[in-house]
Structures are given as structure tokens and as C-alpha cells.
Design a protein around this nucleic acid. Sequence first.
DNA 1: AAAATTCATTAACCTGAGTTAATGAAAAGG
DNA 2: CCTTTTCATTAACTCAGGTTAATGAATTTT
Lengths: 176, 176
Amino acid sequence: MIDQFKNAGVVRFFPKGSFLFRQGDKVGNLFFIQTGLVKAYYETIDGKEFIKSFVGEGEFIASMQAVVADSTCSFSVLSLEASQVLEVPQQALLDLVSCDAEVAWSVNKMLLALSMKKERREYELLCMSPEARYLAFYEREFELIERLSQNDIARYLGITPVALSRIRKRLGLQRT
Amino acid sequence: MIDQFKNAGVVRFFPKGSFLFRQGDKVGNLFFIQTGLVKAYYETIDGKEFIKSFVGEGEFIASMQAVVADSTCSFSVLSLEASQVLEVPQQALLDLVSCDAEVAWSVNKMLLALSMKKERREYELLCMSPEARYLAFYEREFELIERLSQNDIARYLGITPVALSRIRKRLGLQRT
DNA sequence: AAAATTCATTAACCTGAGTTAATGAAAAGG
DNA sequence: CCTTTTCATTAACTCAGGTTAATGAATTTT
């Protein structure tokens, strides 16, 4: 299935700190991260940042709102490391899904996997304390954590960097 | 598409306070709520309840984990009102999806709608304060709120009933 | 190399949510 | 009809996270 996307897409290179797309843009394209790391985040009116997710090698990211409802992106995606990305245009994506049963099935599985990931995220935000969320993230994404700043980890957990620093001190996880 | 489900499913009646399924059960069936209201919630080890969502007339609920991964349900579903429910067995659902392109397409749309709902929920839990979440819920689900207890609203917002009572007092929304 | 910026940590103070417990009202059960 | 249970509210207290600001280290820029 990747082959069809490879044929339909373009490989692009995003230097560290550049945007794949920005909140408010109308970009319905699908982005496969081939190498590197990006973050998807919301920016509120008062300038606060909240990180939805980190997306690394072999994963993908798109604004569902933009792809499906043909509306604007509700979040921004920024590269945290220099990244090589396969960008599949929205129209090519829609065409493939409606014409190619194999692709449709793959997209289905991708959606399901995404839904289950979102379900876990919802569970953690709803049921767990910031400290428990940090511990869970630490267990699950150990290698990822080493590539992230404390700022970004905090913003992913929904707390401030100051609070994260206190949590790390409490847990004796500082000065790694 | 509803017709295929109607043929494949059974209509059941759940009195108020009864379970459609419980956390830990292996129930991969799909439930259409025809009349009434149910809540889907997690129960933690220390006995705390966190409500994932309320599901009312014309909506559906299933444990994706159970349907897709054939594993156990990670949450319980309980009727808050006497409810009439169309229950479609897991196997019938899977058969329909793989054989009937129209159903597959409908399920696809259902999944997409679900994903977008989850996205909004994630946004609210990540970016908004309890007070702001309550206000948003109040705006969006005004008629639903009148059918819910303060306890259930609080557990949906991820706070305690005491905290919700204080918020309502602060906002001057008490004694409605 | 020097200057500027970014980053993680810490301190001090404030605020809002959790906890426990008491109260009164409403609903349910016998 | 009376008792019991459930529910929403309130008070008192505790505590974790937010805010602001300062510090020093590390990185980046010039």
C-alpha cells in the first residue's frame, strides 16, 4: 500500500524548526514521516501551546478536519528534527481511497489504529494525574523522551515546564 | 445502511441502571441507542469513576478494542434511562463490513465521525480548564445536561462533584 | 570570542481542585 | 407514612499545579 502513496506523493525535506503546516492553513495533505520527528500542537489565543502528539519515523500525520471536511487545520505541525517526509496531496489521497480497495482497507486500518491511540490519550488525560501521566509516558516512550526538551514533554502532558521539573524532582529522575 | 444492521441485530430493552456491558467483559457487539441514554465510563482500581461519554438517541457505542482486537472492554456502559437498544453481534458486524461495500463505507464514516469527536474531547481535556470545559459542555449539550446528575457531569468533566458545585456557584448557574 | 537566546531548575506566592465531613432536600423502599 | 438512601451544597483544610521571576548552563548568533 505504501507503494501507491509513494507514487502519488513527493518526498520533501523539512529542516529543524520548520512547519509542515500551520493552524488555520487549508492543507488536506497526508504526511508520512520517513526520518526525523515532528510535533503536532494547538496554540491558544493567549499564546499557550498544547502538544497533541509527537510523530516519528514510520508514522503519519494529517489534519482530519482538513482532509475530510475540507476545512482548515486546527493545529500546527513543526519539525523538531530535520525530517524527510513523504507528502501525499489531498486529491491523490481521496482518489486512491475511492478507487483502490487495497488502499481503502489500509486507510481503514490506519484510522482504527489512530482511534485506539486517541482512546489511550483520552484515558490518560481524563483518569490520570500529571505525575502518573509522566510516568506512563516515561515507561512507554523511553527512547523518544531523550529526543525531546522538558518544555515539549510538559506541553504534551498538559502541564507547565515548572510543574514537570517539580515532578521529576519528586520522583528522583532529574540529572539523567 | 441501518436496514442491514436492523436485520442482523436484536432489539433489547435495558431498564435504568442496567449494564449494556462491563469493563473486563468480552463483548464485541455494536449497540445503537434507539431511545434512552447511556454512559460509558472507566472505573479505576481505587474505585473512582471517569465518564468517557454519554450516548443518546440515534447514536451508537461499542468497545473498539473488543470489536477489532477481539480483546476485553476497557470501560463499562450503563443505562441512565430506560433504553431501547439495537444490538448487532460482533460476527454479524464483521461479516457485513467485509461483504457489503455500502456498510463498509458507512462504518468508515462512523469511524471518522468518532475520530473527530474524540479529537474535540482531547482538545478540551488538554487545553481547557475545568471551568471552561463545563461552559463548553453547557453550551453544546444544553438539553442533555437537564437529563444528567451533577455527579455524572462532574465525572465527565474529570473533576469531583464538589468542584463542579463550586464552579456552578462561581458562574451563578445554581438553582436552575 | 563575545553577546544573545534558549533551557532547566528553583523559590515564593497564589489559586483552584481534592478530601472529608456535615447538612438538608429529594427520591426510593418498605 | 416513615425510614433509608441518594444527591447537591457548603465548610475547612490540604496540596499540587500555575505564575512570575531569578539563576546558571548550554546553545546559537554575530
